[in-house]
């Protein structure tokens, strides 16, 4: 059971990827994408933590330190994830204004109908 953090991360990873690929609703796709990205945060942060260790403060009473670098990296990745989600949602709003729907199959059908008319 020592690897249970990895099991959780991989479950979230696969679940997120599945939702992204399998769902036709554009908002649900973005939710899946977010879950997928979040799983990577866990993958990075879990190995950085040592149980019983502290932040790397140099003082005589602390001997074991956790690695802070993964946290810093993931802070950047979270910012990127938020930016991606915001941009994705903004695009969905524009798509809904242009097509009147956020279902991928309806949008594609609409495009095909337009092609057939032309």
């Amino acid at each position: 059971m020592g690897h249970y953090a990895y099991f959780v991360a991989i479950f979230l990873m696969v679940a997120g990827l599945y939702v992204t690929v399998a769902r036709g609703n554009l908002v649900k796709k973005l939710i899946g994408l977010s879950i997928f990205q979040t799983s990577v945060y866990l993958l990075y942060i879990a190995p950085g933590k040592l149980i019983g260790a502290t932040a790397p403060i140099v003082a005589p009473q602390y001997a074991t330190y956790s690695n802070p670098l993964p946290h810093v990296l993931i802070l950047t990745a979270i910012v990127v994830g938020v930016a991606t989600l915001a941009l994705g949602l903004a695009l969905v709003v524009r798509i809904r204004e242009a097509y009147g729907t956020v279902e991928e199959d309806q949008i594609l059908a609409e495009d095909e109908r337009r092609d057939a008319d032309a």
Partner: peptide, 16 residues
């Protein structure tokens, strides 16, 4: 409007 869907699809694939 097709540019919007193209951008969205690229966003999903690119982020993956």
């Amino acid at each position: 409007r097709r540019a919007l869907l193209a951008a969205f699809q690229y966003l999903i694939v690119g982020t993956i």
